[in-house]
């Protein structure tokens, strides 16, 4: 009897922990970007085809190497130890603003994995804060791009 009760309790705890973890994982990014523009797949494609834009892939370099949007550059949102106060105990992730174009009126598109990709959202916010005026955020990211049937570049 005790064993059965214990089993049910373990199962219940497992379900609760899993749900919390899943909620944490599945936490989505906002649908709007203050000071910037949110792009759809089609808008992104049109802009990429027009050219003269800067497409920043905020995922890891390894994932960038596995495939990225045409013309994209790796701008990994990672820990920047050059920022003051950053340490192993207090890691501060940041994009390398030096890799962004000098002209702050250039069109820049940030993207990452998808709607749950906070890297691109935060990178876009950083760029807006840095004074870039044409910051675009492709919220759908790689996932939406592939779902729309477009191909990646290697």
């Amino acid at each position: 009897m005790r064993m059965r009760a214990f089993s049910w309790m373990v199962l219940a705890i497992g379900i609760v922990v899993n749900t919390v973890h899943a909620a944490d994982v599945a936490q989505e990014t906002p649908t709007e970007l203050p000071g910037g523009f949110v792009l759809s797949v089609e808008e992104t494609r049109i802009l990429i085809e027009q050219g003269h834009i800067y497409v920043a892939d905020c995922r890891s370099a390894f994932n960038f190497g596995k495939g990225h949007l045409p013309g994209a550059r790796s701008l990994e949102y990672q820990v920047d130890y050059h920022i003051e106060g950053t340490s192993a105990d207090n890691p501060v992730k940041q994009i390398n603003l030096n890799n962004l174009p000098d002209n702050k009126k250039n069109i820049i598109i940030f993207y990452s994995h998808g709607p749950t990709g906070w890297k691109s959202y935060r990178a876009a916010q950083t760029a807006i804060k840095a004074g870039y005026t044409q910051v675009h955020w492709f919220r759908g990211g790689i996932k939406a791009w592939l779902e729309a049937g477009h191909k990646l570049e290697y």
């Binding site: 890891s60 370099a61 390894f62 994932n63 960038f64 190497g65 596995k66 495939g67 990994e76 290697y154």
Partner: peptide, 16 residues
């Protein structure tokens, strides 16, 4: 090295 990781990712993608 980011470039190395990109190449590694590319190779990984190709092998995938």
């Amino acid at each position: 090295e980011p470039e190395g990781m990109i190449l590694l990712g590319r190779v990984s993608a190709i092998t995938n």
